[in-house]
Nucleic acid binder design. Structure first.
Lengths: 153, 153
DNA sequence: ATAAGTACCTGTACGATACAGCTATCTGAG
DNA sequence: CTCAGATAGCTGTATCGTACAGGTACTTAT
């Protein structure tokens, strides 16, 4: 079954990713909205990316996160309303707006991240460190492959 | 970096899962809706599960897929409208409705599944079979962990 | 036989997202 | 320098997936 076409492995990967998305969403729903509307999906990734890659404008975020610009605009507006990011005019381009995380935003993001990390820690409690590392590495490669496929230019 | 607490690995897994969910959704959008509204997300998993576990009623589907009953009802209605499933009264319970996939539904599901599998095949073209197998196995374990966490009873 | 429980459906609401179209700004060719 | 085209961001509108609350029909236990 591992001759030239390992169909079954690909099929299994497909299945598992689909499952993961279903359960991941359910988990997010259960974890996130518990307290006081902590952070919705896109808001979290946006803050995450800002914390990671520094302040940047809407288009850059949209491209990186594979989202429509309008979606990012709205998410960013909500984040601004909640004081989690600030908009400043891009000094080098009058059309642009630079989005920066506020300390509150970073803190909120870190809190969510910590909660999720804890959750994963619980779930993967009986995994060996090697397996965890392997999973992290392979997921990273999978995402890279996805990125490469979606934006070949 | 792998001392007592491998926080960073957990954090990375968390990040990658979040990213994967974003890209997975984008991929689904791009792949699925291309032709003639092939199959939306939940519809696909529902058909998938029906093909896998046989005809069953709405509550069973909802429980298994971690969805609200009303959501499944609507998805099932849409699937019925499109001729992809049939509803029959449950002979052993007058309240229940048994959902069965139609041949067309199974075919549609298989087509989507094949397309996705092909997509993964493309993306993972340069992976070794070992890496693919490892990814499949680890994802499976991860999902199992998620399931165990979400439904401890 | 009646109360409590269950299965499904419907009304309603919300969040995330996309696409189309708008305005303001930038850039490059003449 | 000017103006046509490109680009950044915003807004209007639509759609989809989902949940919760409430209703109806049926079942089960007492």
């Amino acid at each position: 079954m591992s001759d030239d076409h390992d169909e079954s492995t690909l099929g299994q990967i497909e299945t598992e990713v689909a499952l993961l998305m279903r359960f991941g969403e359910a988990t997010r729903r259960a974890t996130g909205t518990a307290e006081h509307r902590v952070l919705d999906r896109a808001a979290y990734v946006i803050l995450r990316h800002l914390a990671d890659a520094g302040p940047q404008n809407v288009s850059a975020l949209a491209a990186r996160l594979n989202l429509d610009g309008s979606t990012v605009t709205r998410q960013v507006s909500a984040l601004q309303r909640d004081g989690l990011i600030t908009r400043t005019p891009d000094p080098s381009d009058g059309r642009g707006t630079v989005i920066s995380p506020t300390p509150a935003g970073l803190q909120r993001m870190a809190a969510v991240q910590a909660a999720r990390t804890r959750l994963y820690g619980d779930m993967l409690a009986d995994w060996t460190p090697e397996d965890r590392n392997t999973l992290a590495a392979l997921l990273s490669r999978l995402n890279q492959a996805l990125i490469n496929r979606n934006r070949p230019r």
